[in-house]
Design a protein around this nucleic acid. Structure first.
Length: 297
DNA sequence: TCTGGGGTCCTAGGACCC
DNA sequence: TCTGGGGTCCTAGGACCC
């Protein structure tokens, strides 16, 4: 599938997660490049190093985004100076979103793309957001948007004024009210410089063709399990539980897990747990995806 | 069109306990 | 024989994000 697309390709309707065959149809003249994770990691480090020189707590959010807790008399000028520094020192453009909290800033950075600066605060929140669909909010995707539409909620403004009880009944006592707060531009989580330790680490593979051969599946499962074990050991972490993920056609995905007697990192123990979890699955269906994930102690 | 790989968080339901 | 109410923990699945 497409990992990322240039703005020129996006103009043809190509976007991330789209199957390559469809992307090629939508944009036959596009150049298809292999992904190069090492290059992106290097570029990410360079950009983050620039941002680290700025005053204020920095919270990286993935490879190509970060939150900066800063205050400035002239936020827009400050944002432009960040942009200029990043461009000068890395040759890369970025967009900068300014907000009173992470939600506003995150949405603003999207609205600033490409290469722009956008300012989103309580003063212009309604002007900018009220008529947009709920999926314009960070944390509401297409599925929740559909569920909201069934409740008659089709805009951010409608969500902001929806009945809390209705939302709680549909989405739960936590998520429901939280979605309404998002629609009002409210967000409490502070920018946090301390990175929480990872909760899990896993590897998965989608086969080019569905695999039925049990020996081939066993071999792949062992390979994934040992790789995960080696990687968490390298990070000095221990597995608490091993979860195996299996996807059949068409996109029928299931997981089963096995808790370890004690936190462990030994490849043989991780592998044994993976096989115990895998044993729960029926073995008579062709497998499209196999994954092993360690939940960490 | 037919759906990657790495994650995080939330929810519902069941088991279990007092 | 049929059964409360409160709580915790575990598991599987799903939604979301980059």
């Amino acid at each position: 599938v497409v990992t990322s697309a240039s703005y020129e390709a996006r103009a043809h309707g190509v976007h991330a997660a789209m199957p390559l065959s469809l992307a090629a149809r939508k944009c036959p003249e596009a150049a298809f490049l292999p992904s190069d994770a090492d290059a992106y990691r290097r570029a990410s480090r360079e950009v983050m190093q620039v941002l680290e020189t700025l005053p204020g707590a920095l919270e990286p959010a993935g490879w190509d985004e970060a939150f900066l807790a800063a205050s400035a008399d002239d936020p827009i000028a400050f944002a432009r100076s960040i942009q200029a520094s990043v461009l000068e020192q890395t040759g890369l453009w970025c967009s900068v979103g300014i907000g009173e909290n992470k939600l506003q800033a995150k949405i603003a950075s999207g609205l600033g793309k490409p290469r722009g600066v956008f300012h989103l605060t309580r003063d212009n929140w309604n002007d900018v957001m009220a008529v947009r669909p709920p999926s314009a909010l960070w944390g509401i995707g297409k599925k929740r948007e559909k569920m909201l539409a069934r409740l008659g909620v089709r805009t951010v403004a409608a969500l902001a004024s929806a009945h809390a009880a209705d939302l709680a009944a549909e989405f739960g006592d936590s998520l429901g009210p939280q979605m309404r707060r998002l629609a009002r531009g409210e967000y409490d989580d502070p920018v946090s410089e301390v990175r929480a330790p990872a909760r899990s680490h896993g590897r998965e593979i989608t086969f080019e063709r569905d695999v039925s051969d049990p020996e081939a599946l066993d071999a792949e499962l062992a390979r994934l399990a040992r790789r995960v074990a080696a990687e968490i050991a390298e990070q000095g972490r221990f597995a608490r539980r091993i979860v195996v993920k299996v996807r059949y056609a068409p996109f029928d995905t299931h997981t089963h897990g096995v808790s370890l007697a004690a936190p462990a990192t030994e490849p043989c123990l991780v592998e044994r747990a993976a096989f115990a979890a895998f044993a729960v699955f029926p073995r008579d269906r062709p497998v499209r995806l196999l994954g092993v994930r360690a939940e960490l102690a």
